[in-house]
Design a protein around this nucleic acid. Structure first.
Length: 482
RNA sequence: UCCUCGGUAGCUCAGCUGGUUAGAGCACCUGACUGUUAAUCAGGGGGUCGCUGGUUCAAGCCCAGCCCGGGGAGCCA
């Protein structure tokens, strides 16, 4: 018999007919009620067995985590917790799940709340929980919506390389890619490792950004975006950093910083709106989950809005757009600065903002997403377009409540002489990036783009608080299990 | 990398000023009950107190080093 997925059965169109479901047991109550989940939805299907007619040995094997194939009649439920249920006629155990601690390997998930830290240690099984089922269904929906957003606007998806030779992007420490024998590498006359003998005949690394390659494509195809994994070998241990993460990097020819901000704001709002429309059940669960978590917090640490309210708020309200210079003025006059509550007092114009300053602007002063623009050139990358004041660049960072920087972007420096000067100032060798400079030599054009951290977006959409819980298999310093 | 908190049963945690045989809830096992909603009731089993060393008559508790995890910071997306 053909299997029907639980999300289809719960729509109640086939009540009264014989159906087959396959899934994993969440709970088995009263020797009678199986709560079955098949991943198609966060909701479980209640399957009712007549224990008087069932083989007792078979009943004992219905344990949390066991995989079952059940055939029976879909009926209106007599109980109050659900609209429909399946009256079991035939039950087959596809896979047992040991529950008896004395018998060794036991299924570690119990019908109760587990800590996220514990579930991270069993990342291969955490898909089976409500929370991670919801998170990864939403992750899929956001992936799809991301492609749809750009496709619908005439963008082309570009697959930029994962292995790169350039060592000059300055976006962070890189992972080396090599096939040389680490114990006995070929050496040059100077005694250094001879990478001419390596697989690619030179040093190579995992990409830290597809931006420079995306710019090449944008200056021919017009509007492009990348969506792929990126790698940073930074020893950063925070809830917002991964060594392997996914990034979306649009790049648009003939666009300036304002176009860039408009696109990024539309991009974020589209995705949040998509989640509200298409992931309602999973979001309702995560909303309740977050509310339950909040109960354990002190009053002053609780958020003013629920997850669903925050999402709705972002969709409905324009992001605040201010320059770096204006932000410094606000921060200098701010209460915590005057009362010396900041760990890092505002040092005046020119220094980078600390996390606590960004949080003040977003969470206390404006209480909405903020786009900061026109940063001092000395604290930003070489490729950002210099403003006429000679001091600031056409950069923009989008700051989100609870998350911090979710987007970083800029109008790119399209003028060859300015770009060369900036590279010299920052000691970036031209020959490393000759191909990048070629775009400015041959038919250069104004253009702009940004990078959007996918996991940070997912933090916001799901209400989770650690990026390790929105990617299936997190890679962080000292941790690459599974 | 720095600061800080933590590591006790399969899970979540308690364990006082160092002092007898290390506790609870959930999970598990046995039994009862059977329209339950993380079912309920009774009974039972279950411990390398992160690791190594030290102090002490005595260490889960104190000291040192190390490992691992959380939170914060830096760096950034």
């Amino acid at each position: 018999m053909v299997r029907t997925e639980i999300n289809t059965l719960l729509q109640r169109v086939s009540v009264g007919t014989r159906v087959n479901v396959k899934g994993w047991v969440r709970t088995f109550r009263s020797n009678r009620f199986i709560s079955l989940n098949d991943g198609s939805t966060i909701h479980n299907l209640q399957c009712v067995v007549d224990f008087e007619k069932m083989d007792e040995e078979l009943l004992k094997r219905i344990t949390t985590g066991a995989c079952l194939s059940i055939t029976g009649i879909l009926a209106e439920s007599l109980g109050k917790g659900q609209k429909v249920e399946v009256l079991v006629e035939n039950l087959e155990i596809l896979g047992d799940s040991e529950a008896d601690v004395s018998k060794g390997d036991v299924y570690p998930l119990q019908p109760k709340a587990h800590s996220l830290e514990f579930l991270r240690e069993i990342a291969h099984l955490r898909f089976r929980t409500n929370t991670f089922g919801a998170v990864f269904r939403i992750r899929h929906a956001m992936t799809y919506a991301m492609h749809k957003f750009f496709h619908d606007r005439g963008f082309f998806n570009i697959h930029t390389p994962i292995i790169t030779a350039s060592d000059a992007e300055g976006a962070g420490e890189m992972f080396r890619v090599t096939t040389l024998d680490p114990k006995n590498p070929p050496l040059t006359e100077n005694g250094e490792v001879d990478f001419r003998e390596d697989f690619f005949g030179r040093q190579t690394n995992l990409t830290v950004s597809g931006q420079l390659e995306a710019e090449l494509a944008a200056l021919a195809l017009g509007k492009v975006y990348t969506f792929g994994p990126t790698f940073r070998a930074e020893n950063s241990n925070t809830a917002r950093h991964l060594a392997e993460f996914w990034m979306i990097e649009p790049e648009v020819a003939f666009a300036d910083l304002n176009d860039n901000m408009d696109l990024a704001e539309a991009n974020l709002k589209y995705l949040v709106q998509y989640a509200l429309e298409h992931c309602a059940d999973d979001l309702a669960f995560l909303n309740q989950r977050a509310l339950d978590e909040e109960k354990n917090k002190k009053k002053e640490e609780r958020s003013e809005m629920s997850l669903l309210e925050r999402l709705q708020f972002v969709v409905e309200n324009p992001f605040e757009r201010i320059t770096y210079t204006e932000a410094i003025e606000i921060l200098e006059k701010s209460k915590p600065n005057k009362e010396k509550k900041f760990q890092y007092p505002i040092q005046g114009w020119g220094t980078d903002l600390q996390s606590e300053h960004e949080r003040y602007l977003v969470e206390k002063h404006f209480k909405k997403p903020v786009i900061l623009t026109d940063y001092p050139k000395d604290i930003k990358a070489f490729y950002m377009r210099l403003n006429d004041d000679g001091k600031t660049v056409r950069a923009m960072d989008i700051l989100f409540p609870g998350i911090g920087e979710i987007v970083g972007g800029s109008q790119r420096e399209e003028r060859l002489d300015y770009l060369r000067k900036r590279m010299q100032e920052m000691h970036i060798p031209e020959q490393e990036l000759y191909w990048y400079l070629d775009t400015r030599k041959f038919g250069t054009a104004p253009h702009a783009g940004y990078g959007l951290g996918f996991e940070r977006l997912l933090l916001f959409v799901t209400g989770m608080t650690n990026v390790r819980d929105v990617i299936p298999f997190p890679r962080t310093p000292k941790s690459a299990d599974f």
